[in-house]
Design a protein around this nucleic acid. Structure first.
Lengths: 205, 205
DNA sequence: CCTACCGATCGGTAGG
DNA sequence: CCTACCGATCGGTAGG
């Protein structure tokens, strides 16, 4: 019973796909319009400029990513269970929404100019929601003796670990499944690093 | 006694800086020429097309990266010393050559079309030099009991770790120094993950 | 949502 | 290494 997409949503989908594939400058408004099946000028009924279209997509990508991953971290269970659950949520989101991750990656690399500054501000705004949550998680885990390092180092190691997985999943596209299949092993090495001990149970995806 | 740069080198420097900042499509041949101080048409005495310019820069970046990091892995010392030395070499190269790393990142994201295929082929060619070296390192380390995981998992965990650090260093540019200062702590967590034991000595950059 | 159009700029070539 | 130029396309607007 899926109703046909409204034009505005078709624009979002077409633009997300093209931006993620070809980059911001590499994607023209005409090509987006062509994929939607309308004329370029009609796009300007929905967005006043190409820049606004990208920022709308970025905002939505960041928001839905945050929404998909926040809960897992504050759910019940041991620190190990909660953090591994969070990892699975992040990876799962990236697998199911490669274009949204692509938009975030694209935006993050667009550092120059006014557009770059607006993007940086948007990303920072969202980090102010997600980082404190992680920070609190690690301090509690440390207080409980579940992990063995300062909160700051744990947060850093976590960022490195997650970003590294995402990058490898995103770039080595033909081998992306390979990485996902190896998550339990990667998790074992990661958890041994942060806790100094073997994980209690194997990660299951 | 640094002699003035020849035009060809000026072109390479200007193009690398602009590509790294603005991306491939976001950088025009006129702008490159402008920064060099010549006319756009003159660029075509050095490169037959914009595409060739990017590929030349990419080849050179990959080659000099490889040259800077290969030795550290096959030097003398314990497995821990060699791998941590290799990590320092990689990070140090990235710090000193942000534009070269930027070119590689840019190129890796350019997946579509004929250009994307040529880039992928170039990157794959270079991986055929570097990956076997790492692979052999991990198998020997495992045979010696220095690490505790399969070679394949170690290689994967290593890639994730290094790429994660590079990404965080590249993107969170204002805080890049912060990451570099935390390398010893990150290394400790990483090494505990791969070996199951505390490192013998602190990493020194 | 369209046709018709704007000035600017794109990558690249001719010819010297 | 230059001037002069090419056709194509860019983001965006006017007006309906």
């Amino acid at each position: 019973m899926t109703s046909p997409l409204k034009t505005h949503d078709k624009i979002r989908h077409a633009a997300a796909a093209l931006f993620a594939e070809r980059g911001y400058s590499g994607t023209s408004m005409s090509r987006i319009a062509e994929r939607v099946g309308i004329r370029k000028a009609s796009l300007y009924n929905y967005y006043s400029a190409k820049e606004e279209l990208l920022l709308d997509l970025l905002e939505e990508s960041l928001q839905s990513w945050e929404d998909s991953c926040r809960l897992s971290l504050v759910a019940g269970g041991s620190a190990e269970e909660r953090l591994s659950g969070h990892l699975l949520a992040v990876i799962d989101f990236a697998r199911k929404n490669p274009q949204k991750v692509g938009i975030v990656r694209l935006a993050a690399t667009q550092v120059g100019g006014k557009l770059g500054r607006r993007i940086a501000a948007l990303i920072e705004k969202h980090e102010q929601h997600s980082l404190p949550l992680l920070s609190r998680f690690f301090s509690e885990a440390k207080a409980n003796g579940d992990v063995d390092a300062t909160d700051e180092d744990l947060l850093l190691f976590w960022s490195v670990f997650v970003d590294g997985i995402l990058i490898n999943q995103l770039f080595a596209t033909p081998k992306a499944e390979h990485y996902v299949n190896r998550l339990p092993e990667l998790w074992r090495l990661f958890w041994r690093g942060v806790s100094g001990e073997e994980p209690d149970r194997e990660l299951k995806g």
